[in-house]
Design a protein around this nucleic acid. Structure first.
Lengths: 335, 335
DNA sequence: ATGACTATTGTTAACGTGTGCATTCCGTGC
DNA sequence: GCACGGAATGCACACGTTAACAATAGTCAT
């Protein structure tokens, strides 16, 4: 059917070995023959058979991009930016295969043969068995977005604890003291770190956290909505709420306006993630920007470098987050 | 390194052919030997080498999921739903390879060998050369989301013209007559169809469209914002605006509130796509739901059926859209 | 008992590419 | 003139799997 190096060899009057070497730019082959063969190859519209290459070279040309889950809980924007970032650096050297870890009942089929490298965009501790499996099998690996304890694994993350600290410190600077927290999805490391940053900022300013001022969330709009409804029933309402992501912040804003109140006049809201929508909500949401696309670019670049140089760098890379001030926080300072 | 069928054969005292047949459940092999070999295989932790299979069976086990672009203009929610839908039906039979068409300078490397089938999530006429290439190469193909003229191509789309008709008819039912249109990105078929639905609904109700009441858009927040700013400068403002997607509708709402006005009191807004955020904006956005996930499921299912049954169904499947009524449209009827 | 037929297993080649080891040719130094 | 070395190419096999064909043993009808 399709043209192979043997076809080219026949046409060129050489052996298929020579063709193979010529197309791989081997120094063994005369420059003129190389040229002749190369032009002949393009003229004959030759495409290498990657299955055959894979078989003999023991490389799959596949990079796996694994998310904790595809079917639930991953925000669309997050997902999109991660794929963009990775896609951007792999170009045509690899095929990008997108998977959800929770699609697997057994990791048996995940081997060195099927993936030259794996990028895990991790959102939960539940990914650990998968990460261990990949490490055991000796597959080059990078874990993004969630800090990893396992030594010997490349890890690129944003400093979320610092981001939350930044956000809450900002609230305090603006004069807020009764600050509430809508937590992230239980089990997600990001939820823990953002909470930690919140607590550190409070402690650092010698503020105590009312236990009524914490509410569990699921990172979705609905749980932010519910949390805010709860806060609004309290006799002494918080003046500001730190939501562990933007979606929940939007839900909270919704609840506030449903109660006939206004953001930020009655309650200040701050989010996390800097979703595209954050800028266009009314009022525009003050939030923390997390450089997902940059994380995934950085991760993919380092992974590929590890693969191609057969090295095994295992650094942990921390990328800084930054506060994006918009309109959803009111200053309580009388000036 | 890893265990092959020959290793199993040696252990079992049979030929590697027998092992191959046993693992593929060939009727030629005695049931007992099959069992013996199968248990031995799992005990030895055997995983088939897909490169070898691919080479001899002439199948890649790859499905390509191609978007018009990954780097610009695709909405995150859209992207996410499409991948989810496809991923949902392919399970572990295929690897899902995600690509942007605009990443390619040449389609040369896209062949039958590298993809068993291709799903194009098409958002622009510019995809046509790619679609033609895939058709030429004889790669099983399905085009989602954009109507295709090319005969002989499987095509699954939502009826967007009907959706727009639905939306605008609803506005008219609520008593609106001065209805403006924020158009979609030029060149995108969806933009044309939504506009067509708009026009048909107007015509059907014998309403004329003021040429000041049309404004080009890019499907992003900013252009909706700009369009609305324009409409607000008009002496005779529209009472309702049909935005060709939700993002632009959000932008428009933003512009309205910036001008000190309220939705829907002063201007009614209706969107298209039913983004996750539409429900949680204030006021919640009335919009048209487009079943992206269902489209991609349907498309993937039919493509796989075509591949595996070696048939060549080329139907065009139209899935209905539906109006989701929320709070962003005011009734002008005095009741 | 012999031929045909079935059930089960083995032999061998094939898929397309890369590579270790020969082979050939040519120039160079003695 | 001959050995040596380097440059260029070819031969033959390997990678792991499937499949056409061959082979063997057993069964059954004549």
């Amino acid at each position: 059917m399709s043209v192979t190096i043997k076809d080219i060899a026949r046409q060129a009057g050489v052996s298929h070995t020579t063709v193979s070497r010529a197309l791989n730019d081997s120094p063994l082959i005369n420059e003129e023959t190389k040229d002749r063969i190369r032009t002949l190859a393009t003229k004959m519209d030759y495409t290498p058979n990657f299955s055959a290459k894979s078989l003999v070279l023991d490389r799959s040309y596949n990079l796996g991009l694994f998310f904790t889950t595809l079917s639930q809980g991953t925000s669309a924007g997050f997902f999109y930016e991660a794929i963009r970032g990775v896609n951007n650096v792999i170009q045509d050297r690899y095929q990008l295969i997108v998977k959800g870890i929770d699609d697997y009942t057994s990791f048996h089929s995940i081997t060195r043969k099927s993936f030259d490298g794996i990028i895990v965009v991790s959102q939960s501790d539940d990914d650990q068995p998968f990460i261990d499996h990949a490490t055991d099998k000796g597959i080059p690996l990078v874990v993004l977005n969630r800090p990893i304890d396992t030594p010997g694994v490349l890890n690129v993350i944003s400093d979320e604890e610092q981001g939350a600290f930044l956000a809450v410190s900002y609230l305090i600077e603006q004069g807020h003291q009764r600050i509430a927290l809508v937590e992230g999805r239980a089990g997600f490391k990001s939820a823990q770190n953002r909470k930690k940053g919140f607590e550190r900022a409070m402690l650092h300013n010698r503020l105590t956290v009312n236990s009524n001022y914490r509410f569990p969330g699921l990172y979705d709009l609905e749980s932010g909505h519910k949390a805010m409804q709860h806060f609004l029933t309290l006799a002494e309402r918080p003046t500001a709420v730190f939501c562990c992501n933007d979606e929940m912040a939007l839900g909270a804003m919704k609840a506030i306006s449903e109660a006939g109140m206004l953001v930020p006049r009655d309650v200040s809201i701050i989010g996390f993630d800097n979703t595209v929508y954050a800028a266009y909500v009314t009022p525009a949401l003050t939030t923390v920007h997390r450089p997902i696309e940059q994380i995934s670019k950085e991760g993919a670049t380092r992974l590929i470098s590890n693969i191609e140089n057969k090295q095994h760098e295992t650094e942990q890379v921390l990328l800084k987050t930054e506060l994006v001030v918009r309109e959803s926080v009111r200053s309580l300072l009388n000036g």
